[in-house]
Design a binder for these strands. Structure first.
Lengths: 182, 182
DNA sequence: GTCTATATCTCGATAGAC
DNA sequence: GTCTATCGAGATATAGAC
């Protein structure tokens, strides 16, 4: 039996959004990637917007679950942070979610914008909790968590710009080096 | 006398690229923003691509000059780094150059890609030089410079995602806090 | 639920008058 | 050098058969 058509469409959209963003991905491309016929897309989703919401929210849920898996383990705080920062990433491809902050289709739509904002709010909370465990004040933990997440997002930008996955690793080494010397 | 039409077109394109990127900016929008007539664009530039190259290269030159002004002054290394990191930025709008790493039009064009890559290569060299002044090895200076630039790029992503300019400031505070405690 | 055909719109680019 | 008019292509979305 074929996989659920709706799920197939969401998966194809997720892939294409990771490659080119939402605005630049056409319904036709989603159909070709998924192998589904043209009418089917508009049977399952009233418009490109609803497909985008389904696909982006799926990507956000998956990414948050992965971050929580790294940051909530049994190990000590420092190890969990390192696990999150050093997790293997396809850095040259860029961040599936971070890239949406410069996607015109996403930024013009309140729901999609809120999905992206919610992802980063929750991620910052999660990382901040780990720094508070180390005895930092709320404010300092917040600043350091923002720096940690910025290192990853900036690492993606630099790796993609230079087409060199080592930029991400260098940014993380530079940050962990500063964290480690205390 | 009216300002040079070619320059007017480049300026309008720079503004629009900062707002929506290159792919999503249409020649029509450039005309409307600049107040120039339709035929004029294609008189001065053979295609959208050549206009994009002129506008992006202008933006890159300006941004590099600003970074050099912060990083090459007379002050001590630490102050110059802080000046670069804390320079007032329109963080919610995002980085004019960093955002191009997820712009399909830019990434599909070798010249535009190289312009973006060259910007970050030169910026990383500039920041790395300042860290080497502080006695760091080449490798450590490189890692720390990559982290510093990633903080700014990630700060842009987080500020834009949350529509809150304090995310950039928090990321910089977090990073400078770690740098400062030595 | 899925298909093919097609309507409508806007894009990037060109034509040709002035 | 600048204007208006317009072309051909491809985007989003709809119609209607099966």
């Amino acid at each position: 039996m074929p996989a659920d058509t709706r799920e197939t469409l969401i998966g194809a959209a997720q892939e294409l959004y990771a490659e080119s963003g939402v605005a630049a991905t056409t319904p036709r491309q989603v159909l070709e990637r998924s192998g589904v016929g043209q009418g089917s897309l508009y049977h399952h989703f009233p418009s490109k917007r609803e497909l985008a919401i389904a696909a982006v929210e799926r990507t956000v849920s998956t990414a948050l679950a992965a971050a929580e898996a790294d940051l909530r383990g049994e190990a000590d705080a420092r190890s969990r942070l390192a696990a999150y920062l050093e997790r293997p990433r396809d850095a040259v491809r860029g961040c599936r979610i971070g890239r949406l902050t410069s996607d015109p289709f996403v930024m013009a739509d309140v729901t999609l914008r809120d999905d992206v904002a919610g992802y980063f709010r929750r991620l910052l909370d999660e990382v901040g909790t780990v720094f508070r465990e180390q005895g930092l004040s709320d404010g300092d933990a917040r600043d350091r968590a923002t720096a940690a997440v910025a290192i990853i997002q900036g690492g993606y930008v630099l790796s993609r710009a230079t087409q060199d996955s080592d930029a991400m690793r260098a940014a993380v080494r530079g940050f962990l080096g500063l964290l480690g010397e205390r």
